[in-house]
Nucleic acid binder design. Structure first.
Length: 420
RNA sequence: GCCUGAGUAGUGUAGCUUGGUAACAUAUGGGACUGUGGAUCCUUUGUGGCGGGUUCAAAUCCCGCCUCGGGCCCCA
C-alpha cells in the first residue's frame, strides 16, 4: 500500500460526478457572460511567480529544477499564467477580452478542511475594461456563479484600496505606519488598530472615527469622510455607480461595503471584493478578486485588468455543508440474460440500445435475483430480462425498477418503447 | 512552521479507563432457492496508520513519525 501524498485527494466516481456537475454549471455561467475558456500549463518558470508576488512565496510553492537546470514551479494560482499568456499571444485581440479558466493549483501549505496542497481554482480575467458597469458585471458574475451552483448562504463584501489609501493620507500616516496597520485591518483586529493609532499620536476621537469608517456599511458616511480629497472623487463616484448597478441592474441586495478588505498583495488597485460562506469556519472565503495591475510589470503595455478566482473545492464543501441534494447518476437500462445461451442476443440488443441510452449488461453470468440486486445497487431505471420464453415470441421482459411493474415487449418495438 | 484533538475490515461503529481469543452492522465474491426471490438462508474475503519501547502478553500503556480534523502563520 502506498499512501497518497499529504494534502492531495483521489476522487471516486461519485465525487467526480458532483465535481463535474458543479464545474459545468460554473462554465455555463461564465459563457453566458461572454467569457471564453483558456488553459495554461501546470508548471511555469519560477520567475513568473516571484515577479508577481516576491521571493517570499518560494517557501509556499512547489518549485524544482528540471534536467536542464531550469527553475520551475507548479502554479500556485492562475492569474499570473493567464497574464503571461495574454502578453505572449493575446495583446492584439479586440477588447474587452473576457477569459475564464479551471485548473489545479499547488501550494505548500498546512492542509486543513477547505485547504489542500493540490486544489482546483476556477476564475476569470477581464482585460481592457475599467468602467463601473464592467466592475459591476464582474462582481455580479462571481456572485451569480455561486448562486447558480446552488449555494444559499453566501455573503458578498466590497472594498476599495484607493479609498483606504485616502483614509491613511487623511491621517497623515507614513508608509511604515500603513504597512504596520494593513495586516491588522485585514484581520479585522480593530482594537489593535486603535492601540497602534494611539501610539502614532493620533487624537483618540480621530482614531475612533477612522475605525468607524473602516467598519461601516454606510457608503455615504465613507464618501463624506474623505470628501475633501479631490484626487479620490472619481473613485468614489465610480464605486457609487458600481453599487448602484449591483443593486438595481443585477438585483443583488445582500452585499456589504467593507473598506477593511485588503487582499494579499500590492498589485491590487481600486475596487476589491470577496464572497464568503459563513458556514465554513476558518477557510470560508469562496471567491476573491478585484482590479489589479500586473501587465506592465510583466512587460506588456498598460491595460486595465480585473478578475477573480473561486476556490472550487471550498464551493463543493459549502454545498455539502448546506446539504445540497446532488442528483444521483442513473443508468437507463440493465440487461439480464437468463442463461448463457441468451448472452449473444443480449449483447446485440445492448449494442442497438446504446445508440440512445446508457445501457449496461450482466457480464458475470449471475442469476436473475443477484442481477436485479446489482441493477438496483447501480441505480438502473429499467431492467430487460432476456430469456427463452420471451425470445420464442420475439419479445423481452422490461421491468421498471422504481415501480416493479413488468411488461413483455416485442424486440422490434423495444427501442421505441424505451425512448417514449 | 506553531498549539491542539483523533486514527480499529471498503463503509459505520464497539472494545481502550482496569493489558489477556478483535466484535457487531453493512458492503464485496461464491452458493442454495429449476426464470421474478431487488427477498431469505449458507458461506467467503477483509481490520488495529507506521515504527520502536515496556510486558509472559499491547487495539489498550509509553515514545517517535505519518495522515486527517480544530485553531494560528499564510492565504497570491
Amino acid at each position: 500500500m502506498y499512501q497518497i501524498p499529504r494534502g492531495t485527494r483521489d476522487f471516486t466516481s461519485s465525487e467526480m460526478q458532483k465535481r463535474l456537475l458543479v464545474e459545468n454549471k460554473i462554465r455555463t455561467t461564465f459563457k453566458k457572460f461572454g467569457y471564453n475558456e483558456v488553459q495554461t500549463p501546470v508548471f511555469e518558470t519560477l520567475e513568473l511567480f516571484t515577479a508577481k508576488s516576491g521571493e517570499g512565496i518560494i517557501n509556499e510553492i512547489y518549485s524544482f529544477q528540471d534536467k536542464g537546470g531550469r527553475d520551475l514551479a507548479l502554479r500556485p494560482e492562475l492569474t499570473a499564467p493567464v497574464m503571461r499568456m495574454y502578453i505572449d499571444r493575446l495583446q492584439m485581440e479586440p477588447k474587452p477580452l473576457k477569459l475564464f479558466y479551471f485548473g489545479n493549483c499547488y501550494r505548500y501549505d498546512r492542509p486543513q478542511k477547505g485547504r489542500y496542497r493540490e486544489f482546483k481554482q476556477a476564475g476569470c480575467e477581464l482585460i481592457g475594461v475599467d468602467t463601473p458597469e464592467g466592475y459591476a458585471e464582474l462582481i455580479s458574475m462571481g456572485y451569480k456563479i455561486l448562486e447558480n451552483i446552488g449555494l444559499k448562504n453566501i455573503q458578498l463584501n466590497i472594498g476599495n484600496l484607493n479609498i483606504l489609501s485616502a483614509m491613511f493620507k487623511k491621517l497623515n500616516l507614513s508608509e511604515d505606519k500603513q504597512k504596520y496597520l494593513v495586516p491588522l485591518i485585514d484581520k479585522s483586529m480593530f482594537e489593535d488598530v486603535l492601540v497602534a493609532l494611539k501610539d502614532f499620536k493620533i487624537n483618540p476621537n480621530v482614531a475612533a472615527e477612522f475605525i468607524d469608517i473602516l467598519t461601516t456599511n454606510d457608503f455615504k458616511k465613507i464618501s463624506e469622510y474623505i470628501k475633501e480629497d479631490t484626487t479620490i472623487k472619481e473613485e468614489i463616484n465610480n464605486l457609487n455607480k458600481v453599487l448602484d448597478f449591483l443593486k438595481n441592474s443585477f438585483k443583488i441586495k445582500n452585499f456589504n461595503i467593507k473598506i477593511s478588505i485588503v487582499r494579499g498583495l500590492d498589485y491590487y488597485k481600486g475596487i476589491v471584493f470577496e464572497i464568503e460562506a459563513p458556514t465554513l469556519g476558518a477557510e470560508k472565503q469562496l471567491c476573491g478578486g478585484g482590479a489589479y495591475e500586473l501587465i506592465p510589470s510583466f512587460g506588456g503595455s498598460q491595460t486595465p485588468t480585473s478578475g477573480f478566482a473561486i476556490g472550487f473545492d471550498r464551493a463543493i464543501i459549502a454545498l455539502e455543508t448546506e446539504e445540497y441534494k446532488f442528483p444521483v447518476e442513473k443508468l437507463d437500462i440493465f440487461i439480464i440474460p437468463v442463461n448463457e445461451d441468451m448472452v449473444n442476443k443480449s449483447l446485440e440488443i445492448a449494442e442497438t440500445l446504446r445508440k440512445n441510452l446508457k445501457v449496461d449488461i450482466d457480464l458475470m453470468r449471475r442469476g436473475i435475483s443477484k442481477s436485479l440486486k446489482y441493477a438496483s445497487a447501480i441505480n438502473a431505471q429499467k431492467t430487460i430480462i432476456i430469456g427463452l420464453k420471451e425470445l420464442e415470441e420475439k419479445s423481452v421482459t422490461v421491468r421498471d425498477m422504481n415501480t416493479g411493474k413488468q411488461e413483455k415487449i416485442l424486440i422490434e418495438k423495444l427501442e421505441g418503447y424505451l425512448l417514449k
